[in-house]
Design a protein around this nucleic acid. Structure first.
Lengths: 122, 122
DNA sequence: CAGAATCCAGCTCGATACTG
DNA sequence: CAGTATCGAGCTGGATTCTG
């Protein structure tokens, strides 16, 4: 890494900021299976508020990770799809899922040991 | 993915929560080159407050991603090292860095186009 | 040197109400 | 159905001060 690798503008920081948004990751994962409508997403993703979902979709669209298609029915329906760019990100994030499934148990064990040590008065 | 894949307890969410902390990622990356002392980290990582660094190191240690070693000099010096578990995570996060370097320019272009469209009155 | 503790400004996010 | 607008509680994180 170069001397400015720890500056706020490095590309890695920008992706991390993006996937730091858990709703964004969940939306991308869901859309891998095909287009989904707004309220359908809302119902599927446990715990999203309508505000957060709306916000998340807007910024995913801004990043060209997701496309929005309004269909002129009455009332209007809106369909969200993942883009090819979005797919490449979703695939990459999947490597984190794999790491998690392989190692998160170790991490949680470590946390318990740490907490137990602290509780024992250090 | 199973029916509960979108619940808050899935392992993927836990890793994402971890690497959502930008300081944690930067610390892990730095420690790949070898052990570093507290204030050395503080000086190298542009923009960390002492509070955040301290907090980050503590939780990285709790997760067994980093180890802390106090050396009884006067005044005391403390050395942080990455663990083997930490290395596996750092390597995985690197795939995100690669994605970022390959695609973040497209994303930023998309953002500009999106903003321009909005500024043009939609 | 390596922190812990306190205080507080700012942002996030959920809840609620309203719209085309 | 698919959102927008507004308000307020709560958490986050910087600045500052103090310690072994």
């Amino acid at each position: 890494m170069g001397p400015n690798a720890y500056a706020a503008t490095c590309p890695t920081r920008l992706v991390l900021d993006r996937i730091a948004d858990k709703w964004a990751v969940l939306v991308l994962g869901l859309l891998l299976d095909g287009p989904v409508r707004f309220n359908q997403l809302r119902r599927t993703i446990e715990g999203v508020s309508q505000k957060m979902l709306s916000q998340t979709l807007k910024s995913l669209e801004r990043d060209d990770l997701v496309t929005r298609k309004a269909i002129a029915t009455v009332p209007v329906t809106v369909e969200y799809s993942i883009t090819s760019l979005g797919k490449t990100l979703a695939v990459t994030v999947d490597s984190l899922r794999i790491w998690a499934e392989a190692h998160m148990e170790s991490v949680q064990d470590a946390q318990q040991r740490y907490d137990a040590r602290k509780a024992a008065g250090l």
